[in-house]
Structure formats: C-alpha cells, structure tokens
C-alpha cells in the first residue's frame, strides 16, 4: 500500500511537527536557480516544463527532501533534464564544474 503513494504526495500524512516559522532571505545563488528555471521554461526557449522539473524532483527519491534543500532539488532536477535533452553532456558539465572549483582554489587572499 505504501508503494501506491508516491513520496512527494504527502497531503494528510501524519506529522506532529508544527509548521516551522523561521524564514531565510533568498540567497543570490537561489535566485539564479529560479531565474534559470524561468528562462528555460519561457516561450523563447521552451526547454523545460514545470512538470518535467517536478518529475525530476520526485525522481530524486524520497530522501532528497532530507538531504537537499529546496533550490538544491531544483538545480539537480534542471541539470538532469538538460543532460537528457542533450543541451550539454556529462563531460562538459564535469569539466565546467571542475573549472569553477579550481577558480575558487585560486582565489587570491
């Protein structure tokens, strides 16, 4: 029976936690993820539907909600869809990420 309900479909599940009231200000990188999503979904690009992104988040697995925060789930889903659509390759992504990490290491004091 539990397999019948997909993990993201959580309305009415027992939960004794109060609704958390602490809020955080959105960080620049979170806004950039949001902006990437909006641009990829616009009429000019039409590369990513909201449903594709939701599906990608659901497919990260039930523990993604514990392991990743909101925009980490978004960028993971967006990236997977762009790979699947051959917008870029795994190799291109890997090299670019390594390049960015190297830039960080080299950052002067």
């Amino acid at each position: 029976m539990t397999d019948r309900r997909r993990h993201h479909d959580m309305g009415g599940l027992p939960d004794s936690e109060p609704v958390p009231t602490r809020e955080h200000l959105f960080e620049p990188w979170e806004k950039r993820v949001d902006a990437i999503k909006a641009l990829l979904s616009d009429d000019k690009r039409n590369l990513l539907t909201t449903d594709e992104m939701r599906r990608g988040i659901e497919d990260l697995g039930a523990d993604a909600y514990e392991r990743y925060n909101y925009y980490e789930r978004w960028i993971s889903s967006i990236t997977n869809t762009l790979l699947q659509k051959k917008v870029f390759t795994v190799d291109e992504l890997g090299r670019k990420m390594a390049e960015i990490e190297a830039r960080q290491e080299d950052k002067p004091l």
């Binding site: 690009r45 980490e72 960080q104």
Partner: peptide
C-alpha cells in the same frame, strides 16, 4: 572569501555558464 561554494552552487554556476556559452540564455 569565507564561504566555500557547495556542490549544488557549483552546479548552478556551471549550468549558467554552459547555457550562456551555448547561446541558450
């Protein structure tokens, strides 16, 4: 200076740069 980029922040930057290089955005 004081905060390292997280894995997902690096991923975000990489995606943005690739999309720009490929003239998608």
């Amino acid at each position: 200076e004081d905060t390292r980029l997280t894995h997902h922040q690096v991923m975000q930057m990489a995606v943005a740069e690739l999309l720009i290089e490929k003239n998608i955005v």
